[in-house]
């Protein structure tokens, strides 16, 4: 059998020299670019001005405050410059370790399970079946109700003395006395995480549903013909196509979870014995419970840096697709 002779491809990826100026070149050209677009800047000046005042200045002030020790009576004129002392104190304190551990647990587990359950839900409601729109509506409810409502609902579900969960378990004879959920230092955080997952998975579901609908049908047919069963198709075709949506979803979920305050604060206030204290509640407590603005500022600067890092990856993930499309 003779080989088929190949013909030369008619389109090639662009050669490196043609891809445009490098980073150094772009920075050097910046002043000229700005000068050329000066009238454009005029248009955005009002909005930029408001943003500077409302966002940039408070951030600057908070960062500045983080280098001071502030008095409990909030006589800000009496604050003392202590440099990085606040940071040192935070990073070496025991509570920081346990609060960080709690925060990581909270963020990672909430994000992961919200994603997985959201993916499952998206797969289920992706196909047509009778009653589909009702199911979709019901699945959206946790996302739609307010955090405070959700917190109270779950608080009473979990209540150690009069909770619905305990009541049901006892009636079904699964346990013979109430289980201590929210007031148990080992169970409180997992319980809160479950409530958080319940609240968040519809978001992942919606994002992934949109992604699923972008998977070309032909790929599924090709895979079917190639002998791939449902699971193999999901793994080899659906998941890789969902990669960019998944990255975005997971990053957004992580950002939300790092910031989430209401559920924890309303349900346990950070207790019992600090077992559900996360960064945000700790910062809130430092600022408004203990009125130690200096330390709270330092703490929030640390959190801010971490969020910025995540935000950077988020933007990178979002625009990676664009770059690929333009270059290919």
């Amino acid at each position: 059998m003779s080989a088929i002779t190949g013909s030369q491809p008619t389109t090639e990826p662009p050669a490196p020299e043609e891809r445009g100026p490098g980073l150094a070149g772009r920075i050097a050209a910046l002043p000229g670019d700005i000068a050329r677009h000066w009238s454009d800047y005029l248009y955005i000046l009002p909005a930029l001005g408001i943003m500077l005042v409302v966002i940039a200045y408070p951030i600057f002030y908070t960062v500045r405050l983080s280098f001071y020790s502030t008095p409990a009576n909030l006589a800000m004129d009496d604050k003392i410059w202590i440099g990085l002392d606040n940071y040192r104190r935070i990073l070496t304190s025991d509570s920081f370790r346990s609060v960080t551990r709690n925060t990581l647990e909270w963020t990672v587990f909430s994000t992961f399970f919200a994603y997985v359950i959201g993916l499952g839900a998206a797969l289920v409601i992706q196909r047509e079946f009778p009653g589909r729109s009702i199911v979709r509506g019901v699945l959206l409810i946790p996302w739609v109700i307010s955090y405070v409502s959700a917190a109270y609902i779950w608080k009473w579900l979990y209540h150690s003395d009069y909770g619905l969960i305990n009541d049901t378990l006892i009636r079904l004879n699964i346990v013979d006395q109430n289980i201590n959920i929210l007031d148990n230092i080992h169970r409180a955080l997992p319980a809160l995480i479950i409530a958080n997952i319940w609240k968040e998975f519809p978001f992942a579901m919606i994002m992934l549903l949109a992604g699923l609908q972008g998977v070309p049908d032909q790929l599924h047919r090709a895979a079917k013909v190639d002998g791939a069963g449902t699971w193999a198709r999901f793994w080899h075709i659906t998941m890789p196509q969902l990669k960019s949506v998944s990255v975005v979803t997971i990053l957004l979920l992580m950002l939300t979870n790092l910031n989430s305050f209401t559920l924890v604060w309303v349900m346990t206030g950070g207790g019992p014995a600090g077992s559900t204290d996360i960064w945000i509640t700790q910062i809130y407590q430092l600022a408004f419970g203990r009125t130690r603005f200096g330390v709270a500022s330092a703490y929030s600067v640390i959190l801010f840096l971490i969020m910025m890092a995540l935000g950077y990856f988020y933007v990178k993930a979002l625009t990676r697709g664009d770059a690929e499309r333009e270059g290919a």
Partner: peptide, 19 residues
């Protein structure tokens, strides 16, 4: 420092002991 003592340190102490 009263608020901090009463609303945070005292309840924390109570919780540390009770748990």
């Amino acid at each position: 420092e009263s608020t901090e003592i009463m609303n945070i340190i005292v309840p924390d102490m109570l919780q540390n002991a009770l748990t």
